Simulated scan of single mutants.
Amino acid sequence: MLTIIDKYILKRYLATFSAMLLMFVPIGIIIDVSEKINFMIENKVPFLDIAVYYYNFTIYFANNLFPIFLFLSIIWFTSKLANNTEIIAILSSGISFTRFLRPFIIGATIVSLFVLFLGFSIVPAANEGFNNFRYTYLRTGGKEIMRGDNTDVYRQVNDNEFLYVNSFNTESQVAFNFALERFEKDKLVSKITASRIKWNPKERDYTMYDYTKRTVGPLGDKIEKSPEKKAKFSFELEDLTPVVYIAETLRLDKLYSFIDKEKKRGSSNINVYMVVFYKKFSVPISAFILTIIAVSVSSMKRRGGMGMNLTIGISIAFAFVFFDKVFGVLAEKSTFSPFLAVWFPNIVFGILGIFLLRNAKR
């Protein structure tokens, strides 16, 4: 049964977190618009596409930075409670610090369940729309804005075939600069190239444009060309999608099946997929850890006031994000365990939270 104090704190918890999101998300949108407005004008991007992009951007931005927003919002309103001596009054009435923490934990539970729901259902679709817009429009003079793993895709389809595409548009289901090489006993047998390859969902096949096939023979190579050619291949549509891109756009059940298929195939990008998979569960748990740390840090009235609490809070929040990003990249680029990499920040800051909570109780 929630008391008046519980309802008061819980209301402040959720209201401040919501206000923090409403305050920072528009700032993120303004910065993004200032960076991309020239590309949008040059490429004559339709207004409706821009509106859909910024809807997806809002979800993408809020989901990635929600730990910082949550942490700072708790620091903010808990510091105000401490400066107004409200916490002293609550604890002086006989309520223990552990009991005082209960509405914060309830608030963290609500936020965690909401983030978990978003991560399983809404965020993958938003990530797909967000990335698709960038691939479709944000290029100029043939030079990609996005580089590295997010553009070129080079993938082993099976023991004998290797696939390459320069970029992929999920909305039109078209890949550009397509190449498929087939080897037998480490020797190139054939190579198919096309300027574009389009998936046909009804026929369950592909249409290649500017098609060329080179078949390597003992007495000479055979060249076959055609402006347009349909064919069926052993690879699937998601094989054309960039590594991080596809992992972020799949719902939990599809992501699990995709990872299982890639493991059987012996994909070298398994760690990238596993990092995305584990983060769907680790990020919501971080809400509890950051809540405990924030309350423990800001519940005491300090000489520096709210400014000192915010300084400490911002330092801890960015340290958490730094650990999260560094170990995520470490797992993706090395043999470091993805599970340990994703959960390491929660483990370290969980221990820190226990230590700070014990000191706060004293």
Rank of each mutant, 00 (worst) to 15 (best):
S315F: 13
W343M: 13
D324L: 12
L310Q: 08
V342C: 09
A317K: 00
G328Y: 09
M306K: 11
V297S: 00
F344D: 07
F349D: 05
S299W: 04
F344G: 05
L330Q: 10
R302A: 02
K333G: 08
F320A: 07
V321L: 15
A331F: 04
F336Y: 10
E332I: 08
N346S: 11
N346Q: 00
P338S: 02
M308T: 14
E332N: 08
N346I: 04
I354G: 00
G353F: 13
I354R: 05
S337R: 01
I314F: 14
G307V: 13
K301M: 11
D324M: 11
S299L: 07
I312F: 13
G353R: 01
T335I: 14
S315R: 08
T311E: 11
F327T: 14
L330H: 09
A341T: 03
V326L: 13
T335H: 13
E332M: 05
G304V: 10
F318E: 10
R302H: 02
I354F: 14
G350S: 06
S315A: 15
I316C: 08
F323E: 12
A331D: 08
S334V: 10
F320S: 07
T335E: 14
F322H: 01
P338R: 04
I354K: 03
G307D: 07
I316K: 07
I312Q: 12
R302Y: 09
A317G: 11
K325P: 05
G350D: 12
M308E: 15
R302W: 06
P338E: 02
L310N: 01
R303K: 15
S334W: 05
M308L: 15
I312Y: 12
